[in-house]
Write a protein that binds this DNA or RNA. Structure first.
Lengths: 198, 198
DNA sequence: TATTAAGTGGAGCGATGCTCCGTTTTCCTG
DNA sequence: CAGGAAAACGGAGCATCGCTCCACTTAATA
C-alpha cells in the first residue's frame, strides 16, 4: 500500500535501487507468465521466474489486480487515448464507437483470462475492475454521447453496461473455435443502432 | 463412473438403500449450499451439511458438474420443454425465441455462479457444459430456424454462439445494480432482427 | 446366521494464497 | 570510509481446498 499507487504507475523516485530492479524483474516475469498461463498464474511461479521471493511481489503489488494493471497499463492507456482520436477521424460517431470497441476487444481477446478477471467478483480483482472503469468509462461515454447526439444510436445505454457486456462476451473464447465474440458484439452494436427515422 | 450416469438422472434401482438415502441427502445439502455460496462451494461444506464424508459425494457425483446438473436437472428439463410449447403459443417465432431466452436468463440469473461455471474452461465443469448444450442447443436451434423461416431474423446465427453469448452476458450480475444482463440481451435480440424488407 | 460385496468416512497429499519475521542490502551521516 | 538505521528481502509456515486411498461398516443374500 505504501510502495505503490493502486493504478500501477511507476513509483516515485525515492526507492532503493534493488527495490526498483526487483519491481521491474517482477513485471517482466509476470508479463511472460501471463502469456502462457493467464493472469491467474500462481504467484509462486511468477516469483520463481523473476528470481525473487513471494513477499517481494506482494510488497510491490499488494493485490493481483495491481500486478495485472501494471503489466497492461500501457495498452490500457493506448486504448483510452484512441477514443478521442477515433472520434475525430472516423466517418461518423457510430463508426468511431465501432472501431474503438474493436480495439478494446482486440486487447481483451489476446490476454488469457483477462476478461474473466475483469468481471470477477473476487475481491482480489476489485482494483483491476476499478482501473479499467476509471480509465475507459469516460472514453466510452464520450463516444456513446457523440453517437446519440448524431442520431446514430438510441439514447439510454449507459457506458458501464456496454463495457461490462462487451467484457463478458469476450470471456472464454479460447480453445473454442465455435465461439467468436466479435460476431455477437457486432450484433449488439446493430441492436444499438437507431432505427432510421420514418 | 459406475454409480451414476453423467447427466445426473436418478440412478437405476439396483442400489443399496443407504446409498440411495445418502445420494438424496447430498442433493438436498448441495441445493441449500449452492443458494448461499454458489456452485463453487467447497465440497467439504456440502459433505458436512449432508452429514456424509467427502468420498461419498465423489462416488455419487464424480465431477462437480455432475452434482450441479443433478441439482438443477428439473429446471433444465423444464426450460428445454418450454421451447416447442412457446413456439406453438407465441405470436411469432421471434416472440417465442424472446420468451424462451427470458426463461433461460431467469434460470441462470437466479443461480449464483452458474453462468460462470457454464463458460468455465475448467475440466471439472466440462460435463455441465455438455449437458446444457445437449439438452438446450436443439431447442434453441429450433426456435432460431423458425424465426429465420418466418423472416423475423437474419440467417447465419448459430445456436451455440447465441447461447454462449447469453450465458456470458449473465455472468457477474450479482451485487451490481449497475449491470442488468437483460437490457443487453434485449439489445442483442434487437440486432438479430431482420431489417424490414424495403 | 454367516458371507460377501457395496458403501462409507476421514486422514492425507499436493497445490495455492497470503503473512510473518529473521536476515541482508542499501544509503546516509559523521 | 566506517557504522548503523531503515528499507527491502525471501522463504518457512499456516490455512484452505480438491481429490484419493483404504481400513472399516453395513446392507443384502444364501
Amino acid at each position: 500500500m505504501a510502495t505503490d499507487s493502486p493504478a500501477g504507475e511507476p513509483p516515485p523516485g525515492g526507492q532503493r535501487v534493488d527495490a526498483r530492479r526487483n519491481r521491474q524483474a517482477v513485471l517482466d516475469a509476470a508479463a511472460e507468465v501471463f502469456v502462457t498461463s493467464g493472469v491467474d498464474a500462481p504467484i509462486r511461479r511468477i516469483a520463481a521466474r523473476a528470481g525473487v521471493g513471494m513477499a517481494t511481489i506482494y510488497r510491490h503489488f499488494p493485490t493481483r489486480a495491481d500486478l495485472v494493471t501494471a503489466v497492461y497499463r500501457h495498452q490500457i492507456e493506448a486504448c483510452a487515448e484512441a477514443g478521442p482520436r477515433l472520434l475525430a477521424e472516423a466517418d461518423s460517431p457510430f463508426d468511431a464507437l465501432r472501431r474503438w470497441i474493436d480495439l478494446f476487444v482486440d486487447f481483451l481477446v489476446t490476454k488469457h483470462g483477462l476478461a474473466d478477471a475483469l468481471r470477477s467478483e473476487d475481491d482480489r480483482f476489485a482494483a483491476l475492475h476499478s482501473y479499467f472503469l476509471d480509465r475507459l468509462l469516460p472514453v466510452c461515454g464520450q463516444l456513446l454521447d457523440a453517437a446519440v447526439e448524431a442520431g446514430d444510436i438510441e439514447a439510454g445505454t449507459r457506458p458501464y453496461e456496454l463495457m461490462r457486456g462487451i467484457g463478458n462476451l469476450c470471456i472464454g473464447h479460447e480453445n473454442d473455435p465455435r465461439y467468436d465474440p466479435r460476431r455477437l458484439i457486432a450484433l449488439l452494436l446493430q441492436g444499438l443502432r437507431q432505427p432510421p427515422a420514418p
